[in-house]
Nucleic acid binder design. Structure first.
Lengths: 203, 203
DNA sequence: GTCTATATGGCGATAGAC
DNA sequence: GTCTATCGCCATATAGAC
């Protein structure tokens, strides 16, 4: 137990530095993108030296991959919510859509994350694929399951319908906020969520 | 007329260089992104010297903006098609969806363009907004008009429905190809286009 | 483990010949 | 108008002291 505690203290200190580095890396990579970020600024932003960064991560690519995987697993898992859906369809779908839009709209880091992820998806295909699997797939699956358990909705292709639901919401955030289109292509969120819900439940 | 022709020949040669530069810039920027692209490689890829690039464009930002605006106006205008829609709804919507998906799926440059555009949308907000206006808005408007002229579809909010239609298609390309999700989240295109069409015309 | 200092190369942008 | 050559700076990554 004493030995274990010693070992814990050991890795705790080391993990503190790792946390600082990842925190600094997040600030820099999310704002400036992969190529636009320098390891000098990552180190400075994390309050450590550059050599310390390289002692914990193999190189710039390794740090970037570690950061994105961590963000996908821990930080942005909850944007849509992934718990099993239950209740009356109109209410459930409406609330899901409204909540998802609100979460995305008010989370600047989430939008910055999407920008970087998509922007780098050509050079880091494995990371992009991992994020589809860990961020988008669970949401599609959750909605798919819900549609399957509500046959009264008369949905011919529950999985495709789930994609339409999620895709419409994500693309709305894309045009309005990420691409700064709210002035040039304005629309109130409730019109999208209302129409989307009506489309799906109009049996 | 002789003078005019002389002047034309003059600007023709100059425009040839500009075309070469823009062609090189497209290859580099679309593959490596803004920060990942060097002016040396742009010049080399265009077959001109770096000084020639700077004689025609103010700086790297200016070249990038000019390139993206040009691509938005001339190269990627036609992906969805923007001519007035006419005909029986089921057929029109089905064909529109299938054609749009095919165009996007088979145009690697279009996908690279989307990656760069979204990736740089935080640092070049005006460019992103311009592309929403010149690329997405016309498609939404065209579909909006079509829904307005087909009251028998009983669409409560034609504009929101147009967004759902377009957003679902774009997001599908996003997950399947841009984010390399086709292996981890597979789905045949016709399931999306069929379901999307059915959702909209199920009056 | 963490630091300072540095090696090495590529970057954006320009000067000056032609 | 276009080129070659170059300036000054900042990038990634590492060596060596503590």
């Amino acid at each position: 137990m004493g030995l274990l505690k010693l070992s814990e203290t050991y890795t705790e200190n080391s993990n503190d530095k790792v946390e600082q580095i990842l925190k600094g890396a997040m600030q820099e990579f999310l704002v400036h993108g992969y190529a636009g970020t320098s390891m000098d600024r990552v180190a400075a932003s994390g309050g450590v030296s550059k050599a310390t960064v390289y002692s914990h991560f193999q190189d710039k690519k390794g740090l970037f991959k570690a950061l994105v995987e961590r963000l996908a697993k821990e930080r942005f898992q909850s944007v849509f919510g992934t718990k099993k859906l239950e209740g009356e369809p109109k209410k459930v779908l409406q609330e899901l859509a409204v909540k998802a839009l609100n979460e995305m709209f008010h989370d600047d880091e989430y939008m910055a994350f999407m920008r970087v992820l998509i922007g780098e998806s050509g050079r880091f295909p494995e990371i992009a694929q991992f994020c589809v699997e860990s961020l988008i797939k669970p949401v599609i699956d959750t909605l798919h399951d819900y549609f399957l358990s509500h046959k009264e909705l008369n949905i011919s292709d529950p999985e495709a319908t789930a994609r339409i639901f999620v895709g419409s919401l994500v693309h709305f955030v894309m045009t309005q906020k990420i691409m700064h289109g709210s002035d040039v292509l304005p629309m109130e969120s409730h019109r999208l969520t209302d129409t989307l819900t009506d489309l799906v439940i109009s049996y």
